[in-house]
Design a protein around this nucleic acid. Structure first.
Lengths: 338, 338
DNA sequence: CGGAGCCGTGGAATCGATTACACGGAAGAT
DNA sequence: ATCTTCCGTGTAATCGATTCCACGGCTCCG
């Protein structure tokens, strides 16, 4: 590998001058500059990012730790995060926690060892003292989508409260009264919030959310399947099942089918998170869509603000209901985005 | 940040001894070892990976450049790659090329600047002289899924030939004769191969693959939609459309629906790449499944072999047909994996 | 005409690790 | 007892960059 010394030798200047040219430091003579540039070109020289990072103590790299790459919602989020980061001159290293706290911690530590400039996290289930420690340790950090209470870092997320209210209104209008929810892990904020918002919305219609209608899932398809089986085995099974994420909705759909039931005639289905495939399932699935692109971009901007010494802002964006056919045929004025 | 010097001071030894303990070098006294370990613990010291990499000239990091993260096939691949790499003690940095050669080159260069130990690439459309250059430059490199002719590096991929023959047999048995294909970009190997295998399989049944039945796609949903619209507008539209990847199949499904046609009664649909959602579309989609997990693992093993000075092997694994209902109701003995 | 100030440049310190080499002391060989 | 060998340890060089400081030469001003 050619180093800055080779370039210096080739151009007949010192390494200091080469470095100045490369970092567009003002005090370099035009003559020296051209000679250096020519040498760089001739040798195909590229600065060693490792050496540079050691000296400058910055890597221009952000870490992104997400709970599950296979979840299309997070994949999309990751894509937007990388895009915005690139626009701001940063690279992104993604760590996939697979919803496992210890794997999450592994990635966080690895990223810290590499001296990333900042960390974007969507914390998995289970508590992780590491997070609080990292944030106290001074590493710029921002939570996206999910967050951890008690850890004082900016949060960028979508608020589903309003959309969930719309969903319940929609279900109520269709005549459904027995509504169940497949919740996410209790330890994730998104897991809790969605249940609470659902319960509140039901109250507004004087409906109850009995314990047996709250299934404990883990954001994976399998758990959606298991919970739904239990719902269907109830003496009074729910008329509609609302899954707190798209993978559990997939599992729920499996279970309903396997029981020989039809959606929406026998059991309705709705999901939090909207994904392209929901248009093509049988039937198309009514879902709550998050503004994923905006979320990803806002998260990166907040983090970069922090890294570069500006004061970052927490951001909450509204999610919105997309009505399709999985809860029953909506009145025509309620249809949208098919 | 605490450095090795702090640990040395705390333990009352030199930095050399600390380093020896950390790298489990044999000649350290038990006494020194315990004192160092205690100091590491007390200070919460973690070695600076940047400094270490600079000195040792290895990062224990692999680069993975894929054509499109939003494609579930690649997401899954990436997940397995990371898993296997982690098992072997490596981290992975993913670069998403979004099917754009210039973005692909950007990521390759960034990864090289960071001195990754090896590079896993699934090249996008368009030629990139950079690849050949990198490989000649001595960076360990392995192609996965797609490859570039003329660049002499190991290739890990699935062979769809056999499965495509099975697919054509299946379609022929259902009475279909006019079969069309939505191809991938001509410049990608997977794009070409799938068309050629399809043509050959048709020949075996004395069927032709006319030019108008070959649509030019780019592995994105939109192109599948456009190509399918054109197919359907033909005086003699095809009875079955075979999409060379899952996203184009999604687009094709859109287009068929938009034209007011039913699958499979009016137009059949099959896809290369199988994904969980294909079970739940209306109707479930017949697809060719790649052994993604094995592919990812084999690719990492080949690359690590190369990095660590062993001689790497190209690997080709068979894909297999999964019959569902999107091409017509199969005879009962042909059904599988619903 | 002489001193102050500026500009372009190079030498050398530095970042945090690894590792070759030297050295002192203990143990074993003769 | 003396010589060799080996072991544990420390000193210092090194990786490839950035950047502080000093220096020589020039310009400008009084």
């Amino acid at each position: 590998m050619t180093s800055i010394k080779d370039v210096a030798a080739q151009a007949g200047v010192s390494v200091a001058t080469v470095s100045r040219v490369l970092n567009s430091h003002p005090s370099v003579s035009p003559d020296a500059r051209t000679r250096v540039l020519a040498a760089v070109d001739a040798l195909g020289y590229r600065p060693n990012a490792v050496a540079r990072s050691l000296r400058t103590d910055q890597t221009r790299t952000l870490g992104l730790v997400i709970s599950d790459v296979l979840n299309p919602y997070f994949t999309e989020l990751a894509r937007f995060v990388e895009e915005e980061a690139r626009a701001l001159g940063y690279s992104v290293i993604i760590g996939n926690a697979d919803e496992r706290p210890e794997l999450q911690d592994h990635h966080v530590r690895t990223l810290l060892d590499r001296r990333i400039d900042g960390l974007l996290v969507s914390p998995a289930d289970g508590d992780s003292p590491l997070m609080a420690e990292v944030s106290r340790g001074g590493t710029p950090m921002v939570f996206v989508d999910r967050w951890m209470p008690g850890v004082d870092v900016p949060v960028v997320r979508a608020d589903g409260r309003h959309a969930i209210r719309d969903l319940v209104a929609h279900l109520h209008a269709l005549g459904h009264r027995r509504l169940a929810i497949i919740a996410g892990p209790a330890a994730t904020t998104t897991g809790n919030e969605r249940v609470e918002a659902f319960r509140e919305a039901l109250h507004a219609y004087e409906l109850d959310l009995p314990e047996v209608y709250i299934g404990q899932g883990d954001f994976q398809a399998d758990s959606g399947r298991r919970v739904t089986e239990r719902f269907l085995a109830l003496p009074e099974p729910p008329e509609v099942v609302f899954a707190a994420d798209n993978l559990m909705a997939l599992g729920a759909l499996d279970a309903i089918r396997a029981a020989g039931l039809r959606v929406p005639q026998d059991t309705g289905l709705a999901a939090f998170d909207d994904i392209p495939w929901f248009v093509h399932t049988d039937p198309p699935i009514t879902a709550i869509a998050q503004p994923t692109g905006e979320l990803g971009r806002a998260a990166v901007r907040a983090l970069v603000d922090m890294v570069e010494g500006r004061s970052p802002q927490s951001v909450t964006l509204p999610a919105r209901l997309v009505v399709r056919r999985s809860c029953g045929e909506p009145a025509s004025d309620q249809r949208s985005n098919l």
